[in-house]
Design a protein around this nucleic acid. Structure first.
Lengths: 342, 342
DNA sequence: GTGAAAGCGCTAACAT
DNA sequence: ATGTTAGCGCTTTCAC
């Protein structure tokens, strides 16, 4: 069933039917009702592609995820996607997920701009010096970055992010306040902007406490359980082992916990741990796992806000670089204790 | 730049340019080269929506994921998506991810069929009596199910699945062979078809070993770490506690390991454990975590095959219900030992 | 309030 | 080997 058929069925012109269905005001109330009834009865829905061609709006938002050694499809991403998806449904947009080799990411954006199959894109997991933003600006493709690439000051694009630096500053401060001097930082990949900012927060707090940062206690990698396990095992085997761990994710913290238990120690008694929890999607409550700083469902919220922001940008309701930044909520946990006496 | 402009620029008709760009054989080799060069130079790419309207093919595959209490976007899903995405890129298709409230899933399919914005869909996580397949068959929308809903015999649709029942039969057999009599099964949600099949395999092997299944040792829930921890803690507190665990995922196994360590026991010495590993995306090697049955990257492979199969179906290269079924590879691990003497 | 007609940018019959 | 023409199904002026 298409518009023409439906209109013939009703003895109306396609124009009127289209207007009735799209809620134009100038349509007679009765005709409108008749049209809607007929559409529902015959299960008519306008052909998506025809409408898109006619309006010039694709109603699609691209999410390009690189397929590489490092998995980008992780719990954080999943939560974000869930949030964004909700916003899209509400606004009638479609999420288009493109899985492409990392090195083809820019080409994908160029192709998207040239073939006009998305109205905008969302950039995930920005790197320390990320080439994607400039590329997108040049292409004139509207976009929002989840995270950011610029350290301080104005960025010439829209982004939204949590206060990673502050969160890790405060977490570290909390540990130094308990007397910890040897604190290990199990961070994300150094190339990632969020890891850079977390490191800055850590270093800042160490300095503020008059402590020297030991580079041997800082590790950065994909935030997996085995990474936490292996890094913690290695660090705990040292004679001057750390008395506390600062983890970039709950997944990593689980690995640390495994390493700690394995050598007969206990988290919260012998070793302190604070983790940034960004893995709530597979650990719905985190319940029994002690933790401290948590984003909880805020990643999903971030996805929703990002999508909303992008749609506003596309539809011209907002202009120019908009940014949003929010705090990471802190949760006290059972894994904190004073540093052992020397 | 559109087709008309490009063709005028070249002094050719739009048709010829279109033919040259789409690789039709009847085009002069020189013109073809000229056209391609001009297209590249001016960054021309055909307008996606115009092409889709003209061809009647949307080049889109829908993935509907329910947004509910139970997270559907989990590591298994992520791996599957990565695999499918790869296949789509290769074939020029787009993945359209729709996040919708669970109760609106069928409506979403109906809307997709009516508005023709996808060429087909992939059904995830089928339930024991899943209404989606019948709905899709009625709608005439091509689809592939990752998993299945019908227990045995012919299903009137395409699906692809791993041998869950066999895998859990063999895993259980292995444990009974070591003398274990009290085996706990930490399964997925009972409403999920895969959990049902795993349970069947477990029960079959118990029966084959002449053992009685204790319902108190069977738990089914979302496969999270806290579930594993809490279930194992509770079960290990019983006087007649299990001597072995069979887990539906590595995430759950991690929780079991935590519970086991916490009470001073050790996996592989005091308690045996076999896990089906479907969480490789956040545990890239599983390395130090002992495990037994593993799908490793086979979920990603499944996504790739499913996408390929669906495209074949859409493009008419295959017809009728196709199914594919494969074994879960077994990996020996360090977590197995004989059952303790009575 | 309704309709006729012209596009949106492409592909695909049907010539030549 | 190339061009002409007619759609694909909708929206959107413009006219009544």
């Amino acid at each position: 069933m298409n518009l023409k058929e439906l209109s013939e069925l009703l003895g109306l012109s396609p124009t009127t039917v289209s207007r009735a269905l799209n809620g134009y005001p100038e349509v007679n109330v009765d005709t409108k009702r008749r049209v809607e009834a007929a559409a529902a009865e015959h299960g008519y829905a306008p052909n998506t592609m025809a409408r898109r061609l006619a309006t010039g709006r694709t109603m699609g938002i691209g999410h390009v995820v690189p397929l590489g050694e490092h998995d980008m499809i992780n719990p954080i991403f999943a939560e974000f996607i869930a949030g964004a998806g909700e916003a899209y449904s509400k606004a009638g947009y479609n999420m288009i997920l493109s899985v492409v080799p990392k090195e083809k990411e820019l080409d994908t954006y160029r192709a998207m701009a040239a073939s006009q199959n998305v109205d905008g894109v969302i950039v995930h997991a920005p790197l320390v010096n990320d080439p994607r933003m400039k590329c997108l600006v040049d292409l004139g493709l509207p976009f929002i970055v989840h995270g950011r690439s610029h350290s301080e000051g104005e960025a010439p694009y829209c982004w939204l992010d949590i206060r990673n630096k502050d969160a890790f500053f405060h977490a570290t401060e909390r540990l130094t306040g308990l007397g910890h001097k040897r604190i290990a930082l199990l961070n994300g990949l150094p190339s990632m902007m969020f890891a850079r900012r977390r490191l800055e927060g850590f270093e800042g707090a160490m300095e503020a406490a008059g402590l020297k940062v030991d580079p041997a206690l800082i590790r950065g990698a994909d935030m997996t359980e085995p990474f936490g396990y292996e890094a913690a095992s290695a660090l705990l085997a040292k004679v001057d082992r750390p008395t506390a761990f600062l983890c970039s994710s709950l997944t990593v913290a689980l690995g640390v916990n495994r390493a700690v238990s394995e050598i007969g120690l206990q988290l919260g008694r012998d070793i302190s741990l604070i983790t940034h929890d960004d893995a709530m999607s597979f650990l719905p409550n985190g319940g029994s796992m002690p933790m401290f700083a948590s984003t909880k469902s805020s990643v999903r919220e971030a996805g929703y806000r990002a999508a909303e922001m992008l749609i506003d940008l596309i539809e011209g309701r907002v202009m120019g670089p908009v940014t949003e930044l929010w705090d990471v909520p802190f949760l006290d946990g059972a894994s904190l204790g004073p540093a052992p006496r020397e």
